[in-house]
């Protein structure tokens, strides 16, 4: 360092110490909002293992994993949109179904490779349309993705005739769908792999850093010379790619695909993300926590099914859990400010 810098430092030391820092109390509430998922999940699993008949069987656990994979893949992808402060991507419903139908309909005719190309091309379109409308046009993400959901589903139903597609028996889709390593289905490895990849992308790369930074403060990010609009397109693209992968996994598992296959994916993914501790206000969150959130939602669903509680109550429960989780987040922020 040159002399002048040392001068500044000397000055700094020589001056009266000012009240330079406001210590922030990190209250119990904010700890729960961020880390509560660990406890919630542990308690849920413990209670279920003892109290719920049939929960702790290998078969049941495999089935939980099978069901968790597609919704989980969607959720870890959509975490990017949530962290960027753009609430959510409702159109994942249309994206998963589009991918599922393409993988089976095109895959049966032209093989898996062509189908994969077609499916990812479709997800590229979704990501770009959503991202450009939200990023470049600064349009409300909820409304934009509501519109693209209906555009996408309408087109899908039109081209598919609303019919159900079945994969070729013993075709590559079915083989993948039924593949297991021990009791663990292949789809679980896909979920883990994408979680790891997206987690590294979020925490170790410039792109992930910018997604977070945009979520914290859009203006400051832009005024650091960042093309923030492109970052938003990136976040929607990540979500779209993940949704396509989810469509593949989902279609492979049942070896069928139909335009209505992914109903409710948007909410369940959002519920998993929020329960995992990612803030709906953007800027704070993690892909790994979303994975835990997914496990929570899946285990909860499984328990409700096992004890014979109907679909309606499950839906009701998730809605209330979303509201409570967000309330917790808001209250912890309010207390943190004081």
């Amino acid at each position: 360092m040159d002399k002048k810098t040392t001068l500044t430092q000397q000055m700094a030391v020589a001056q009266e110490p000012e009240k330079a820092i406001v210590e922030r109390k990190t209250g119990a509430l904010s700890w729960v909002a961020q880390n509560g998922i660990f406890i919630f999940l542990a308690v849920l699993i413990l209670v279920a293992s003892f109290a719920v008949n049939g929960f702790a069987s290998l078969e049941n656990l495999t089935s939980i994993l099978n069901r968790a994979a597609p919704i989980g893949i969607v959720a870890v992808g959509m975490t990017y949109v949530v962290i960027s402060g753009n609430y959510l991507d409702l159109s994942v419903v249309a994206q998963v179904a589009t991918a599922g139908v393409i993988f089976l309909a095109v895959g049966n005719e032209y093989g898996l490779f062509v189908a994969a190309l077609a499916a990812f091309a479709a997800s590229l379109v979704y990501g770009i349309v959503n991202g450009v409308a939200v990023g470049y046009f600064k349009a409300n993400a909820v409304i934009v993705t509501l519109a693209t959901t209906y555009i996408g589903l309408g087109l899908l139903r039109f081209f598919s005739g609303g019919s159900i597609f079945f994969g070729n028996p013993d075709g590559p889709m079915e083989q993948f769908g039924q593949a297991k390593l021990g009791p663990i289905p292949a789809s679980t490895f896909v979920l883990l792999a994408i979680t790891i990849v997206l987690s590294i992308l979020l925490t170790r790369t410039n792109f992930g850093f910018l997604v977070k930074s945009f979520g914290v403060n859009e203006k400051a990010t832009r005024l650091a010379g960042v093309n923030t609009d492109r970052v938003i397109v990136g976040a929607f693209l990540v979500t779209a790619f993940a949704a396509t992968l989810a469509g593949f996994v989902f279609a492979a598992y049942s070896n069928t695909a139909v335009s209505t296959m992914s109903q409710g994916f948007d909410f369940r993914a959002l519920a998993a993300i929020i329960i995992g501790g990612t803030s709906v206000f953007g800027g704070r969150g993690s892909v790994l926590r979303t994975l835990l959130g997914v496990m929570f939602v899946s285990v909860l669903n499984n328990i409700l099914v096992l004890v014979g509680i109907s679909f309606g109550y499950q839906q009701l429960a998730l809605g209330i859990i979303i509201l409570l989780a967000v309330t917790l987040d808001v209250l912890s922020r309010k207390l943190g400010e004081k």
């Binding site: 410039n206 930074s213 914290v216 403060n217 203006k219 650091a224 800027g283």
Partner: peptide, 23 residues
């Protein structure tokens, strides 16, 4: 509002415009 991302750390704020050199 424009200069800093207040809930990010000092290091993260400094990284923001310098991210290319630091990666």
């Amino acid at each position: 509002t424009d200069g800093l991302a207040l809930t990010m750390t000092v290091a993260e704020n400094i990284t923001l415009p310098n991210r290319k050199e630091l990666s």
